[in-house]
Design a protein around this nucleic acid. Structure first.
Lengths: 303, 303
DNA sequence: CGCGCTAATTTGTCACGGACAATTTTTGTA
DNA sequence: TACAAAAATTGTCCGTGACAAATTAGCGCG
């Protein structure tokens, strides 16, 4: 029996992060991925193909070149992958993290949330994000790479944390006269958690935050920024966001926004970017955002 | 002088919502949008073109066909648009709704949230959803069609309500022995609010809900359903979801899930669907979900 | 052996047009 | 008028060629 068909052609980008054009070129150059069809004749990709593509993604991220890995069989890819993943030892020996992951694997949703709240303890949201959430996400990513957890575990985990942050942000009251920050995800980005963490630490410092969520065209972002009369616009780029799109997006937004409104961009991937446009600040770490906010408050009080 | 701002080819989808393939076909068939190049020779779209495309988007949403509107000049499009927007009746009859919309237009984010909470008053989440949220969203849609509000107003509104619901759900405690429901958006669907409303009324009835958010492949949904050992899977289809994809998606999921797990689908668009697959329940109204939950509770207590 | 510089190769993005299926409109007929 | 068949409209996907950007390899020189 053939492997079950599962991903429609249109969904392949969401599933693997590779664009259709890219995959088409690979098919022409490396004879992979093949064209496949469901029993009803619709084009699509088999589970096997999708898995191979996911492994290719991992290996490309690990530094391999497409010509070397695309076209290899699942076995070859896996061999390569274990070789690589073994060479990167599990540094996430954080006991706290593995405890949370265990709870997730047991599918104990209530228990996970309770444990999460307990880990929060007396921490600020900033401390909580750095010492609990970030390691947990990293540990989950590694666990997924090892095959220890499934994708839905990651989704569920993110969702729980997002909800918790939503609730926490809602109960924070902005200080009088504090800056007003517009929060949004860049177009095409759907990973909320990063943005929520930024919003949480900003709100915790007393800033007034206004969030638009995802799927905002950049020109709408500009309209919102002026109509809300905000003091800054904050974006968040996840690791899944195509690195080559980051600078163009930022430059584009920079052109649209009036110069007096600074752009703050968060996300660990920004660490690798050297030359930022003027008027755009990059914050690979959460602390940077807090510092930027405090700078802004100082500026405002000086006047 | 030529218009100066250019949108890169790759960004056009985010800006207008039209895909590259689609625009290419339009260029081939209607000689619009033209291929343009920046001073440096990069391909892109001029502001004028982007504006025309945005108007086309509005008119298509209003029921026109591409062959009729694509290729018209900006002036012709605007004339058409005012003609149409005048015909959209100002059915903001509900005073409560227009009050909220006014608050949104003033970009008074804190005031909007406060007003929202006030409207909640002593209502249950179900009553709140039906009497406040749903009319508000409908009113906003109409206002957008008339050009009274911008897209970012809608986004901001949805986001505020979503956050409120998140917080409310988090404070609800499930009853002992109540059914466990897995909540998720179908692949490609990104409108959370509908799903959140369903989750809210379920949680309000004492059900235990487990939400995975969006972008879950259907097979992962199945894995999650079995590993969490849920009693039902609930999905939500927004009006933006392509109607022709609804039944295939539901059938696909039905094949994946064990028969004992019912599928509940919510969303106003489901009202138009006549023949549902067995084992799938369609709920165009929120009440239906509550009824289904109560039925399930009865079933369980009988045993 | 390291360091820069240039050439060659690899890789990704875009445009184009053909094929095709889904949908809507028009036409023909009872 | 009603309803079925035919025609058109429309969007999505595919393969291919062109091209620019990124990467690697080659090479001379200190």
């Amino acid at each position: 029996m053939k492997s079950r068909l599962f991903v429609a052609s249109a969904d392949i980008e969401r599933e693997t992060g590779f664009g259709r054009d890219q995959l088409r070129k690979w098919r022409q150059r490396f004879q992979f991925p093949p064209l496949e069809f469901t029993a009803e004749g619709k084009p699509g990709y088999s589970v096997n193909t999708v898995n191979r593509l996911r492994l290719v993604r991992r290996l490309l991220d690990g530094g391999f070149r497409p010509g070397y890995v695309v076209g290899k069989t699942l076995e070859e890819l896996e061999k390569l992958h274990v070789a690589v993943s073994l060479s990167v030892p599990r540094v996430c020996d954080d006991e706290s993290t593995s405890e949370l992951i265990e709870q997730l694997k047991k599918a104990d949703s209530a228990g996970f949330l309770k444990l999460l709240v307990k880990k929060r303890a007396k921490k600020t949201l900033l401390q909580f994000s750095r010492s609990v959430v970030a390691p947990l996400l990293k540990g989950l990513g590694d666990a997924w790479a090892r095959g220890d957890v499934e994708i839905h575990h990651e989704h569920f985990c993110s969702f729980c944390i997002e909800r918790y942050f939503h609730a926490q942000i809602l109960r924070l009251k902005p200080k009088r006269g504090a800056p007003k920050i517009l929060m949004a995800l860049p177009p095409g980005e759907h990973h909320f958690l990063g943005l929520l963490m930024i919003e949480a630490v900003l709100a915790e410092q007393g800033a007034m935050t206004v969030s638009l969520g995802s799927d905002i065209p950049l020109n709408e972002l500009k309209l919102a920024a002026t109509s809300h009369n905000v003091d800054a616009v904050a974006l968040s780029f996840s690791a899944a966001y195509p690195a080559r799109d980051i600078l163009p997006t930022l430059k584009h937004l920079r052109r649209l926004l009036p110069r007096r409104i600074p752009i703050w961009a968060g996300g660990a991937t920004l660490a690798g970017i050297k030359n930022r446009p003027t008027g755009v600040s990059l914050f690979p770490e959460l602390d940077g955002v807090v510092a930027a906010l405090n700078d802004m408050v100082d500026q405002m009080s000086v006047r």
